[in-house]
Simulated scan of single mutants.
Amino acid sequence: MLRLSKDEAIRFLGKQGILAAFVIFMLVFALAEAKFISADNVLSVIRSSAIIGVMALGVTFVVVSGNLDLSIGSMMSFSTIVVLDLHDKIGPVLAILAMFSLTLLLGALIGFLVGYLRLNSLIVTLGMLSAIHGLTLTYSGGKNMDISDKSSWFSFFGQDSVMGIPVPILIFALLAALLGIILSKTPFGRKIYAVGGNGTAATFSGISRSKTVFFCYLISSFCVATAGLIQASRSLGSQNTVGQGLELEVLAAVILGGASLLGGAGTIAKTVVGVLMLGFIQNGLLLMGLQFYVQFVVTWVIIILAVWLDIAGKRGKLWSPLA
């Protein structure tokens, strides 16, 4: 009979504890509500999780590099409003190009402040959260945006399907595959892990920490722009606060996937698992008749549990020793 020592058990919890908890959640939901595991419900959950998932892919790069990005919610609102506003003015193609360009500029600004000026990422992105929100309100004049031509091909990204698979799911899957290869199979990916694991050692090894962090934020902003495109295409209209609060869900999904807030650990594949875990847990709670606001409490509990298990797994102790 296989037995684990206390230290081995703690390390296992730090790596797989949340996954075990997810399996238990799934079993409970499946027993409580039969349609939870139906094909239609599963596809619906994955589709509704695509926007959070796409943003989480980019944030994974930032977190693995040892930083945070709390500006993604406001940035997604900005991207959505801009592409909707420009759609009727300059056409969908130019609107999409302009929206991606502006969003990448915001990402480059954050990357410059955190990467090259070495400012604290929490402070910078928290400040940018408010700044971009103000920019969005200023741009929109405090109004919501809608596309006049509801038959525009622009709806393809959020409403159509290819071979029975919703386009948002395909975008999420293709982007996950591409970024997964970049993070795990390329020299740039190895630099990200080195910078996040030990920035000083990485610098002495000839790795440019500043450039690496800068490009991580560019990747994150590209993913946010993609999420904004899906959101705008799905509804062909949006409130100017559509992304408000999403940074919490995205960060929760990334942490659930095993990325360490201390940097140097995390994968795209596990982030995808984290996104799906969060989506199915929220869906299960709704199917069981719990009000939507219960999701916020559950999300908070999951984040605290994930961070605790992550830190416990690294220090080898469930409880911090007294100073």
Rank of each mutant, 00 (worst) to 15 (best):
L4A: 03
L4C: 02
A9V: 03
I10L: 07
I10A: 04
L13M: 12
G17Y: 03
L19K: 08
V23D: 06
M26C: 12
L27T: 13
A34P: 14
K35F: 05
I46C: 12
I51Q: 09
I52S: 09
M55E: 03
V59M: 09
T60A: 06
T60E: 07
V62H: 01
V63G: 00
V63K: 01
N67D: 11
D69T: 07
S74Q: 06
K89M: 05
G91A: 11
M99V: 00
L104I: 14
L106C: 12
F112L: 15
L117H: 01
G127Y: 11
L137W: 11
T138A: 15
N144Y: 13
S152V: 12
F156C: 05
M163V: 12
G164Y: 07
L170E: 00
F172D: 02
A177N: 07
L179F: 12
I181T: 13
T186L: 10
V195R: 00
V195S: 04
A201T: 11
S205K: 11
G206S: 12
V213L: 06
F214K: 05
F215T: 01
C216S: 10
L218V: 08
C223Y: 01
T226A: 15
N240D: 13
T241A: 10
G245N: 11
L248S: 02
V254I: 08
S260A: 14
G264D: 05
G264F: 07
G266A: 09
I281M: 09
G284L: 09
G284I: 08
F292E: 02
Y293E: 10
Q295P: 02
F296H: 15
V297G: 02
V298Q: 04
V298H: 04
I302C: 00
V307N: 06
L309S: 02
I311T: 15
G313T: 01
K314D: 07
R315W: 02
G316H: 01
A323W: 11
